[in-house]
Design a protein around this nucleic acid. Structure first.
Length: 456
DNA sequence: CCACCAGTAAACAATC
DNA sequence: TGATTGTTTACTGGTG
């Protein structure tokens, strides 16, 4: 039980989520909003499409192809740009310091005439910290990173954080500690020289969750949801790669964080729906911030089992960790002058690495449902929200990332719990089957429709 | 209004 | 010794 802090200090937290659609690009009256409205209100685009595109159709890539360049995505970006008209993309990546290393650009939309709009490179990213960490780790060849390199990756891809208020590193660490999806692994002997701390990796068991979370993010190229059924085999082909191949994720797409406007998205989506450019995966065209069922694409629930096989080496992303610590110097000095009570036995026995492998209950969407104890908020929150005692009846959201279990809250697992877990697994399997049936039916329907249209 | 989530701040211990 | 890392608590505002 930590000391109660003065409310004045605590009130500084904004609580504004970077992942819930409050991206500055979508401020009222912004270009983004206009595009968004246009994308929503505009009726489906009739032909003709600009068929005079000077772009060769990209060949369908084998799923296991190891992409060493960003060509496919730049092609896609170019293509989207050619339809967008009102928005362009550009790379804002800093020049690669290591010539041998791929530069993972982040693409941000510019306004008309190439002028930067509210969504510049320094805009707050739409990704939650969990997603950012996930992307950072996934972008590492070894699939494991020390915190320092996670900072570096985030800084490299989101210059926003270079000038952001201090504290984001704290949030990163907070996330690593709290989120079950992230697992701390000890360094082996060859890695002892990479600095302090452990390496962090994605718990394969929860990788799905992170992918789902990422897919929910409006800007992400894989946040596509099939608002319309794919009607061609190509469409299915397109969704199977690269993410759904379950292999290295950001390695395949070059770590690109594609940020496009809704208008661009819709144009791209049209192309896909026309079956002309199956390589383009549409983003969801739902309004930013709205979470619909389609956002949680069922595809991810069963197609992606991307257990990475981390080699033993680790990457080193350039960074200056000194430039931005979570506390200011003044605060830090105060911090260290405070008395330090002896840790409780609970704290001493805590080992975060062992918490992720047990007591998972999958809900019908493939998400590990938090156990009752895991859903427990902080004790103070408990006091504040006494009505949360009803949370066992609360509808499990299932689309959030699981928190690590607090050791103090872990109850002895009873037979009932095991039964519940088994039941949950069965339900999950049933859900997967239902999803599979759904997809299969859609595919069959699409093929039927195609045949019929050919007949006509 | 409620339950929940994600972000933020902070305290503090351990480690380098 | 100071900086960094890791854990935990407490709180906030936003969302559905």
């Amino acid at each position: 039980m930590g000391p109660v802090m003065p409310p004045s200090k605590k009130s500084q937290g904004s609580g504004v989520s970077v992942a819930t659609g409050r991206n500055p690009f979508y401020r009222p009256g912004s270009l983004g909003e206009a595009l968004q409205e246009a994308a929503v209100l505009e009726p489906p685009l009739p032909l003709p499409l600009p068929l005079t595109l000077p772009l060769p159709l990209p060949a369908v890539r084998p799923e296991d192809e190891e992409l060493t360049s960003l060509s496919w995505l730049h092609e896609t970006a170019d293509l989207l740009n050619s339809f967008a008209g009102d928005a362009v993309l550009r790379s804002v990546s800093p020049p690669a310091q290591d010539p041998g290393r791929r530069t993972p650009p982040s693409l941000v939309p510019l306004g008309p005439m190439g002028r930067e709009t509210r969504c510049g490179p320094d805009a707050k990213p739409p990704y939650s910290f969990s997603c950012l960490i996930f992307m950072a780790i996934e972008d590492a060849p070894s699939k494991r990173l020390p915190v320092k390199d996670i900072y570096g990756w985030i800084l490299e891809h989101f210059p926003y954080f270079a000038s952001a208020p201090t504290g984001w590193k704290n949030s990163v660490r907070h996330n690593l500690s709290l989120n079950k999806c992230f697992k701390k692994v000890d360094k082996d002997r060859s890695q002892q020289n990479i600095g302090k701390g452990s390496l962090w990796c994605i718990d394969p068991e929860y990788r799905q969750n992170l992918i789902q979370a990422l897919k929910k993010t409006p800007y992400h190229p894989y946040s596509q949801a099939f608002t319309t059924s794919p009607t061609s085999p190509q469409a299915y082909q397109s969704i199977s790669s690269p993410l759904l191949s379950g292999n290295t994720f950001f390695r395949k797409n070059g770590g690109v964080l594609l940020q496009v406007t809704q208008g661009v998205i819709q144009n791209g989506a049209r192309m896909v729906s026309q079956g002309l450019f199956p390589e383009i995966r549409p983003l969801t065209i739902n309004p930013i911030g709205s979470r619909t069922a389609t956002d949680r694409s069922v595809l991810g629930s069963y197609c992606m089992h991307g257990d990475s096989n981390p080699p033993d080496s680790t990457t080193s992303v350039n960074n200056n960790s000194k430039q931005d610590h979570n506390y200011s110097t003044a605060k830090s000095s105060l911090l260290h002058s405070s008395p330090s009570p002896s840790p409780s036995p609970e704290q001493q026995s805590h080992h975060p690495g062992d918490s992720a492998s047990s007591d998972i209950e999958d809900d019908d969407r493939g998400w590990p449902r938090k156990g009752v104890t895991e859903m427990l908020p902080d004790a103070a929150c408990l006091v504040q929200h006494k009505k949360r005692l009803h949370w066992t009846k609360a509808k499990p959201r299932g689309d959030t990332l699981p928190l690590k279990k607090r050791r103090t809250e872990k109850p002895p697992e009873s037979d009932d719990e095991e039964m519940k877990e088994a039941a949950g697994s069965l339900l999950h399997l049933a859900g997967v089957r239902a999803c599979l049936n759904n997809i299969t039916n859609r595919a069959a329907k699409g093929q039927r429709e195609q045949k019929e249209s050919l007949k006509n």
